[in-house]
Computed example of a mutant assay.
Amino acid sequence: MVKLIGAALILFAGTMIGFMQASRFASRPRQIRQLGYALQRLETEIGYGYTPLPEAIGRCAAHLSEPAAALLRGVNQRLSEGNELTFKECWEQSVTAIWPGTAMKAAEQSALIRLGATLGISDREDQIKHLRLAMQQLKAEEDTARDDQARYEKMWKSLGVLIAALVVILIV
């Protein structure tokens, strides 16, 4: 009886590990798309609304879902604290603070950090160009993430179950 319960627990744990890994592959394209949408809203606020950057970031954060909203809220919070940080430093700190909680990889992080280094230091047209460049980079990464999702999501689901079954067979 104890062996049966142990085998069931091992199968459950292995299956859940596989499904958790698969969910990371599934959530990465969605999160990249959300970041692209956030940059698009920021572009609209800056380009058409003539909104100052801190105010534009606050407005965009109110209408977005996580993790993009957390990124913009973090930037806005750091800017409003008045602790003598530049916009670039606030942006980088916010990106590195939220990054462990996302399913995204280093390529997306470096694109965002490069964008943060250019926002707020030039005129409106130049900022829009940099936002569009970052959106193009994120779009390319989203396509790669979709390919990875199609390739690896089902594999991880199956692999979790199969490895757990192998462990149960070896134990019994």
Rank of each mutant, 00 (worst) to 15 (best):
G74S: 12
L119I: 01
L64V: 07
R114F: 08
E81H: 15
I32M: 08
H63T: 13
R146V: 10
M16A: 13
M104R: 11
R30E: 11
D147E: 13
M155V: 15
I57H: 00
E45W: 01
Q136D: 15
C90A: 15
A97Y: 12
M104C: 14
Q93R: 15
D148M: 12
E55N: 03
A61F: 01
L115Q: 12
H130S: 10
L166E: 00
G6V: 09
K129S: 06
S94D: 04
P100D: 08
R33Q: 13
T102R: 02
A165P: 06
M135L: 03
V167Y: 02
I32E: 08
S158F: 10
Q21T: 08
R151N: 06
L159P: 08
T51S: 01
I128E: 12
F25P: 00
P52C: 03
D143K: 15
Q149M: 15
L11P: 02
D126Q: 15
R151W: 05
I128C: 11
L159K: 07
R30H: 07
S65Q: 00
Q34A: 15
L72Q: 05
A106P: 02
A117I: 03
E45S: 11
R30D: 06
Q77C: 05
P52R: 10
S23F: 11
L53A: 09
S110C: 03
I169W: 00
L4M: 13
A106I: 07
Y50L: 04
G18H: 04
P67T: 06
A26H: 07
Q127L: 05
V161C: 06
K88E: 15
Y48L: 14
I163V: 15
S158C: 08
L71S: 01
L85E: 13
E43T: 12
K139C: 06
A61S: 10
R78Y: 06
Y37D: 07
I10M: 02
N83F: 10
K3G: 07
I10S: 00
R73M: 09
C60Q: 00
I163M: 14
A97L: 10
A70T: 11
I113A: 04
E153L: 08
K3T: 09
V2L: 15
G49M: 01
I32D: 11
A106H: 13
L159C: 11
Q40I: 03
A140S: 12
Q40P: 04
V172C: 04
D123L: 02
R24A: 11
T44C: 10
D148N: 14
E125K: 02
K3V: 03
A7I: 02
L53M: 12
L79I: 12
E125Y: 01
M135I: 12
K139Q: 14
L35E: 09
H63G: 13
W91E: 10
R41K: 14
